[in-house]
Amino acid sequence: MTIYLPIAELPVNVFTLLAMGVAVGFISGMFGVGGGFLMTPLLIFLGVSPAVAVASVSTHMAASSFSGALTYWRRGQVDLQLGAVLLAGGLAGTLAGVIAFKVLRSFGQLDLVIAVAYIVLLGTIGTLMVVEGFGAVIRQRRGVKAPVARPGAHPLFLRLPFKMRFRQSHIYVSVIPVVTISFAIGFLGALMGIGGGFILVPALIYLLRVPTVTSVGTSLLLTLFTMFAAIIMHAVLNQTVDAVLGLVLMIGGTVGAQFGARAGQTLKAENLRLLLGLLVLAVGLRVAGDQIARPADLYSVIIDERTP
């Protein structure tokens, strides 16, 4: 059964879209990532223009992150205070990222910068997470207890001034690294067109020592707010939000996110981190593969958006 998308201006199979929504929603609910870094390329592959794909995926991400965040909220695994501080840094970073985007585009090599950023970022984070995850799994098999974090063992950057107590996350750290992390994620998110959840979750776990489930819940809250702002921005500035496309993705996505969130609850935290690490690494390798392999056609044609 096909359906015509009024803004994307092409017909697509409803069941293909629903299946994509369920699959990406499952991953997003399980790991607390927005899933934009998976969904946007899939839509572009279907023939949706990148501008419409990015804008419409934000509606899908808003719906599944709200649905996921509610589940974590009921279990008391969302840190509102931490979310608010992260949001402040994230919005400032987004603004800086949008400006950098324009500057880079004027030099004409934006695509390359984005691809290299993906490879470096995903490769590094993915490798770190996989190595740590394997270590944790092996430790558990052997029955060795993980080293307990003591207050004195905090790295230096967490002991900077402006300390704040985040009760829900059981941490007492300086605000400076929290804002820096969210600024960097907002910056990269605007530059690379991603929500940044898959960077935020590991950053919260490894750098700020927030418990894994609270990291996921708080990241979902942050994704919800960012995506809400993104929908309005895309709708007003570019008129590229396809409500029909968004609705189909959302229905599949929210259903998938429910199952994903439940699967995430039953998995051990170590396994969850290892799986997310493998996923991030796989996407990084895929981007690297695309850049290294000889493309089927050396020429590509895109619609020039600047001259209507």
């Binding site: 899908h60 599944s64 649905s67 609705l247 929210t254 429910q258």
Partner: peptide, 10 residues
């Protein structure tokens, strides 16, 4: 609308 769909699903 997106939030409503997310809420319903939840």
């Amino acid at each position: 609308g997106a939030i409503a769909v997310g809420f319903c699903a939840n």
